[in-house]
Amino acid sequence: MIHYTPLSEYDIYPQQAEQFTNKHLLSIQGRSVYAERQQDGSYQVLQLLSTNPQDYMDETFSPGSIIG
């Protein structure tokens, strides 16, 4: 079986369930973002899910960015 997805294999088949509990799909400024919740309550962007190439030029949504 072939599974086509923009996610990595570790996101689909996590090693442990605890690794997946802090990761959320958020809608920020109308864009879908896959982010990890930090201990201080902010979110760190892991991946931007968009079909608009201009969204990837916005540094707000670059991987590693912190969203308060």
Rank of each mutant, 00 (worst) to 15 (best):
N52T: 07
I28Y: 09
L46W: 03
N22S: 12
N22C: 12
I2Y: 12
Q38W: 10
Y34T: 10
P6G: 01
R31D: 00
Q15R: 14
L25I: 13
G68P: 05
Y10F: 03
D11K: 14
M57C: 04
A17T: 05
Q19T: 08
A17D: 07
S8M: 01
N22W: 07
I2N: 06
G64S: 14
Y56N: 04
L49P: 00
Y4C: 03
S32W: 04
H24F: 03
I12N: 01
I67F: 14
H3T: 02
Q19Y: 11
F20G: 01
I12C: 01
Y10H: 02
S32C: 09
Y56H: 12
L7V: 01
V33N: 02
S62W: 04
E36L: 11
V33W: 06
T60Q: 07
Y43A: 03
T51R: 14
E9G: 05
Y13F: 09
L49E: 03
T60K: 04
L7M: 11
S8W: 03
L46F: 07
D58G: 04
T5E: 05
R31Y: 01
Q16H: 13
Y4N: 07
L49T: 02
Q29L: 02
N22H: 14
D11F: 05
E36N: 08
E59N: 13
K23V: 13
T5C: 02
P6N: 01
Q15F: 10
Q38R: 11
V45L: 06
I28H: 12
H3M: 01
H3V: 07
S32L: 14
V45G: 07
L49Q: 00
L7A: 09
F61S: 11
M1I: 10
D55K: 09
S32D: 14
Y4K: 15
S65C: 15
T51H: 08
S50E: 11
L26F: 10
S27T: 07
D11M: 03
Y56V: 06
E9M: 07
V33E: 07
Q44Y: 05
G64I: 15
T60P: 00
M1H: 08
Y4E: 06
Y56M: 11
S62K: 13
A35C: 10
Q39R: 09
D55Y: 02
D55F: 02
D55T: 08
Y43C: 13
L26W: 09
P14Y: 07
F61H: 08
R31P: 00
F20A: 05
P63K: 13
G41K: 01
Y13R: 15
Q54Y: 12
L46G: 15
Q15L: 02
L48Y: 03
G68I: 00
T51K: 14
Q44H: 12
A35G: 03
Q29I: 05
D55A: 01
R31C: 08
Q15H: 08
E36V: 14
I67M: 15
S42M: 15
S50D: 05
F61A: 05
